[in-house]
């Protein structure tokens, strides 16, 4: 269900599943776009030489996925703040799941807090954070 107003939001509800585009080609395009044209974002073998399991998704792209998931759920939402902690690398070409759940609602100020988690295929948390959004 698409959220149109604060009264549509329920505490504890899961946001609809969102499948991020974690292909290496997309991560690489993103890294170049933002001027982070480092091998660790473009090439699995080069990343492995740096001690990583594979090429990484830039942290800010993970953050971008989380915001896109919120807009997908509530197109009218304005993100007031988002804070993410990068616990472990998100590896390109691996399947990841993005989870969002409503953990606070302030109807007076029309604010909703959402817990955000990026998990890999083993269910391990790679990125977590919270977002505060305004739903007019």
């Amino acid at each position: 269900m698409s959220i149109e107003s604060i009264s549509d939001v329920e505490f504890g509800v899961d946001l609809p599943a969102f499948k991020p585009d974690t292909r290496l080609s997309s991560a690489s395009t993103f890294a170049k776009l933002v001027g982070w044209n480092a091998p660790r974002f473009n090439d699995h073998e080069a990343a492995k030489k740096e001690g990583l399991p594979g090429a990484m998704i830039p942290g800010i792209l993970s953050q971008g996925y989380l915001v896109a998931m919120i807009h997908n759920w509530a197109p009218v939402a304005n993100v007031k703040s988002i804070d993410t902690v990068f616990r472990a690398p998100v590896i390109a070409d691996d399947d990841h799941t993005i989870i969002g759940v409503v953990t606070d609602i302030n109807e007076d100020d029309k604010l909703v807090e959402i817990d955000l988690t990026v998990k890999n295929s083993k269910g391990e948390t790679r990125v977590f954070g919270t977002a505060m959004i305004e739903i007019p």
Partner: peptide, 17 residues
């Protein structure tokens, strides 16, 4: 410093779920 949870919301979460 890296915690983002309010204690009341932990309680609400446990009870709602």
């Amino acid at each position: 410093d890296d915690g983002r949870a309010k204690v009341e919301n932990y309680c609400q979460w446990i009870r709602t779920k």
